[in-house]
Design a binder for these strands. Structure first.
Lengths: 210, 210
DNA sequence: TAGATTGTTAATCGATTAACAATC
DNA sequence: TAGATTGTTAATCGATTAACAATC
């Protein structure tokens, strides 16, 4: 399904398409044209058609796009049917907030386990997810390979944990620590969620010109 | 300090410059050239010089950039000296994780208060931040104007809360709910932190071509 | 001074938008 | 059929990179 040479700009719009189409689908809308979708998303019809044409021909002249079909296609492109799995490192407040509130399944992921070092966290479950000692990480991953490791650990250990995850064979790291990670294994893709970058951008946007 | 016509691409690189320069500063580095900085950040020297030249002349021929000075300048551009304030709506696990772990001051913000509806959350403090009832929001903001409202509420009330914040005069909304917000007041800037978009992008990146 | 490095102008590259033949 | 709308090619726009005179 995926094609070569798709720019990152296009890729990062796909989840947004997916979200919008999901909402339309839930509202009972069956079909939509690129111009109507563009209008509701603040994009041009051209851009939407260009984006989708990177991956195939999902529409029909004179009709537009069937929302159910398009949702299914975009889901496939994003890898939601790939059966991805995840482990989470650092069961502090942020880690537990993700475990308890984030809908991993909706994004096509199964969160298998969390890891921490603090004795009071261990051998319990959070929202059904077992919390194990970090010493067990490599053993656990040998038994249960993970597609992705989620980093919600303190800054000071982020680099070391990223290296251990990469060494243990994860394909991606979802990084919530405020650090630039460069795992030794270059095949591992790092996706950053830098809260401070986001807030500082907002700060710029609301600040007066000087 | 801020100039007109600076592209969003440039703006979103500024926090990353700020982070890198902070690390270099802490490591005791005093000056750096655009080519050395570019090498350590994976950017071209040209791009760095172009980016910075949108805002002024911060370097010196033959020398490069003084890191302290540049940090100060970028901080100013981002509005970190503007005395921004914030309130947080929704003191659930994610809201409390932000209150407890996120360093608002480092990004130039003062988090004044949190709001919730659940009786068991009220009239306590989390990491020194008071939790008030949402009914008190407008009264509180009249006394203590906030630059930004942080949304960590359930999806179902996100739109309504965004409208109340906009109506009460915030300049920006930091949106952690998985919804596209369009506050009626168009002067309010919305900055989204869409966890699922981020994870789905990662999913794409680690998925096999089909 | 000579070497290094800036800020800026020009060239290139890539992404977005417009146009339109194909066709449902 | 006639109207609507696609997928794609061409045109435009904007962002990145390269080059270089100015100068510390």
């Amino acid at each position: 399904m995926k094609k070569q040479n798709v720019s990152e700009a296009v890729i990062r719009r796909l989840p947004r398409y997916f979200r919008h189409l999901t909402e339309l689908n839930q509202a009972g809308v069956v079909r939509i044209s690129s111009s109507a979708l563009g209008k509701s998303m603040g994009l041009t019809a051209s851009q939407i058609r260009q984006d989708l044409s990177c991956f195939g021909e999902f529409g029909q002249q004179g009709y537009g796009y069937n929302i159910n079909k398009l949702l299914h296609e975009i889901g496939n492109i994003l890898g939601m049917q790939a059966g991805h799995t995840a482990v989470l490192l650092g069961a502090g407040t942020l880690g537990r907030a993700l475990i308890e509130n984030f809908d991993f399944e909706w994004s096509g992921f199964h969160l298998m386990a969390a890891f921490d070092v603090r004795p009071e966290m261990l051998n319990q479950t959070v929202a059904g997810v077992p919390v194990l000692h970090i010493d067990q990480l490599e053993g656990y991953l040998k038994e249960h390979p993970a597609s992705v490791g989620i980093l919600t650990v303190p800054k000071s250990v982020a680099g070391a944990m990223a290296d251990r995850l990469a060494e243990a064979g994860v394909k991606g790291i979802w990084n919530f620590t405020n650090i630039e990670l460069n795992p030794k294994n270059e095949d591992v893709f790092v996706e950053n969620v830098h809260f401070s970058d986001s807030l500082q951008t907002l700060s710029y946007m609301i600040s007066e010109d000087v």
